[in-house]
Design a binder for these strands. Structure first.
Length: 665
DNA sequence: CTCAGCCTTCTTTTT
DNA sequence: GAAGGCTGAG
């Protein structure tokens, strides 16, 4: 792959589309205009096709700023833009590419005044929304009945926004337990809406809802963007939800050069409102659509693809299609029953060592699982053996407490109405807890400018906290930039926070202060790229990057990847281990209760089709943890497979190694 | 009344 | 391993 790009750089020839694409891909790339639906099975060169199409549009004279590329993750967007650059051998400027939320934010930053927001609104991430809901809940004060907590309210609200249905509908379908409380819940949701607005905050859902509102209520704006973007490409269309599909429809309404790419068999995000009927019904909404199928799989061996096909066939709701592998025949996928999770970890770790010593680089090996906690034992085992690995799931870098603390300092400077951030940083001061913080906010937010008012609040602070409070004021003063508007660089702002108290706070409260400081230093390095605080903050709130983008440079690093199946979408490895394939784990019991068996099977399909050469399916038989003591059944996704699509391996028990591991617990 | 620290609980998936 | 709830100390 690399060699090929290098060649291009040296020669600077025009792209030879016919030679570099297969006929199916070529047809997509060269199609003149109009609505297009591209059904691209796993491993059929979807990214390649999209990037070549963008490149061709640019070569054909379309200006980059007239192209909009919507993707599901920011990582995918960056990757595609990078590949477009490589293809046409220059740095393409002005091309808009990003997630729906990202693009929504870019547009709303420009026009938020029109829908009643002030400049510099803050973005709430999921945790912030939850906290805000808890605040609303406490304000609502209902005679201690069993109302849903912030996290549940958050979920209800989000589904309601993304699917554009009433709260009653969400409650009835997903939370029937609260059927009798829908009136109360609606009132709390209303408080939340009001609060968000007055605090100048938008949550993730608002970035979509307000975007749509802006387009609907301001014809001139809709006209501007829908004529500006003459070509719109949407990746992972099967994972769009109702509101996203509508935004796409609105913004492409003038030119109708809309290309939707996706695979209904890989729709795995219904829990956040994704509606894979969007892709199934696309032809109904665009009767003049041209439909393309990409059916040649370049990734997996016929054996792996065969297992995948054998599994997905059990789903009823799908476009029927058959993928063909063009790779040489390989080994059958292995099925490995194991005693327990410890033996499972031992097996995987040992296999990794074996495969590595046979010449497969570690970066070509991954271990996938349904949920994060299933990786814990394996992490310890890999650590113990000194096998380098990277975990791509669980706690996000920017969700860690210390990162959010620093971010909150920055946020109050940009948006002084940000109640959550104020309270968060106030509570860092020793001697100030929930109550004092609430008092302070209460007094502050009534004033014109909370950012100035805070300096008059000394009288509300308990005596023992006064020293800390003064230091805090000192820092805020510096962050404000003292005199007038010398715009503070994000990275120097972080430096200020660290050196003026936060470092000391970390040392006195956390034994691992050094690690946390190192994280913040990394955040600082990441911030150097940004000029304005506002951009930096919203970028960070939207960034899903675990570990930060800083690591991109050493992508070739030698390490095994541990990831949830969800996060593995779009990626591929030579060898893939799937662990914890048990009934109740994968499929997870919670999904089964809510009639999502087919979606779980699609997730299994996604996981399986990540493998290029070798696939190991592992399941433990005995559960030792408190969670589900006793025997575990193998997953239905295994039991329903034909016996001839895999080879079962028995692992001999009783090795000394396993006993050692058990002693650790 | 306020705060901090200990103890229990429970682990889906994410922009 | 982390977040929330409860209790005891100030």
């Amino acid at each position: 792959m690399k060699k090929y790009y290098l060649h291009k750089e040296l020669t600077n020839f025009k792209i030879n589309y016919e030679k570099e694409l297969n006929p199916e891909q070529y047809a997509v790339v060269m199609h003149p205009a109009g609505p297009m639906l591209v059904l691209a099975g796993a491993g059929t060169g979807k990214t390649r096709t999209v990037t070549y199409r963008v490149a061709r549009l640019i070569e054909a004279g379309i200006k980059p700023e007239n192209i909009l590329l919507l993707t599901f993750t920011s990582k995918a967007a960056n990757e595609m833009m990078r590949r477009v650059d490589l293809l046409i051998n220059r740095n393409v400027k002005g091309l808009w590419g990003g997630t729906f939320h990202h693009i929504g934010n870019m547009i709303l930053r420009r026009h938020c005044l029109l829908i009643g927001y002030r400049e510099g609104y803050s973005i709430l991430d999921r945790g912030d929304s939850k906290d805000l809901f808890d605040i609303c809940l406490s304000e609502f004060k209902n005679i201690g009945s069993f109302l849903p907590k912030g996290s549940v309210l958050c979920e209800i609200y989000s589904l309601m926004k993304n699917k554009e249905v009433s709260p009653e509908e969400v409650i009835r379908l997903r939370f029937p337990h609260f059927n009798d409380f829908s009136e109360e819940i609606k009132k709390i949701l209303a408080i939340y809406d009001r609060k968000k607005h007055s605090l100048n905050l938008m949550d993730f859902d608002d970035l979509l809802a307000n975007w749509k509102k802006l387009l609907l209520t301001h014809e001139d704006i809709r006209g501007y963007y829908s004529s500006r973007f003459t070509h719109i490409l949407v990746d992972e269309y099967q994972d769009t939800n109702k509101i996203q599909a509508e935004i796409v429809d609105l913004i492409s309404s003038t030119n109708r050069n809309l290309m939707a790419v996706g695979d209904d068999a890989q729709s795995i995000y219904s829990f956040r409102g994704a509606n894979f009927e969007n892709i199934l019904k696309f032809p109904e909404r665009y009767p003049d659509v041209t439909i393309f199928n990409l059916t040649v799989n370049y990734r997996s061996t016929p054996e792996i693809l065969n297992l995948a096909n054998n599994s997905i066939i059990n789903n009823i709701k799908q476009f029927h299609k058959q993928l063909h592998s063009i790779k040489a025949s390989g080994a059958l996928p292995y099925l490995i029953p194991l005693k327990d999770v410890f033996q499972q970890s031992g097996f995987v770790a040992q296999k990794v060592v074996d495969i590595y010593s046979e010449g497969t680089p570690l970066s070509e090996i991954s271990v996938l699982y349904r949920s994060h906690y299933q990786s814990m034992e394996l992490q310890m085992e890999l650590q113990r053996r000194g096998i380098p690995f990277e975990v791509r799931s669980g706690l996000k870098f920017f969700e860690q407490a210390h990162i959010k603390d620093v971010l909150s300092f920055l946020r109050v400077v940009v948006n002084p109405y940000d109640e959550l951030s104020w309270k968060r940083i106030l509570k860092l001061i020793p001697g100030i807890g929930n109550v004092t913080a609430a008092k302070l906010w209460d007094a502050m937010h009534k004033s014109e400018s909370p950012l100035d008012a805070i300096f008059e609040m000394g009288r509300l602070v308990p005596r023992k906290a006064i020293d800390g409070f003064n230091l805090f004021l000192d820092l805020i003063k510096r962050l404000k930039g003292d005199h007038d508007h010398i715009p503070l660089q994000p990275s120097s702002a972080i430096e200020l926070i660290l050196r003026n108290g936060y470092e000391d706070y970390l040392y006195s409260y956390h034994p691992n202060a050094e690690e946390r400081i190192e994280d913040i230093e990394q955040m600082k390095r990441f911030a150097i790229k940004y000029i304005s605080l506002e951009n930096f903050i919203s970028e960070l709130s939207l960034q899903s990057a675990s570990g930060g983008e800083v690591e991109e440079a050493d992508e070739d690093n030698e390490r095994v990847i541990l990831s949830t199946a969800h996060q593995a979408k779009g990626l591929e490895w030579n060898t893939v281990f799937l662990i914890g394939l048990n009934e109740g784990r994968f499929p997870s019991s919670r999904s089964l209760n809510t009639e999502h068996e087919e979606e779980e099977r699609r997730l299994f399909y996604v996981a399986v089709t990540r493998a290029k050469e070798e696939l190991y399916l592992c399941y433990p038989v005995i559960s030792e943890d408190w969670h589900a003591l006793g025997f575990l059944r193998p997953s239905r996704f295994i039991r329903e497979l034909h016996g001839e699509v895999y080879e079962e391996i028995t692992v001999v028990d009783g090795s000394k190694e396993n006993e050692d591991i058990n002693e650790l617990y």
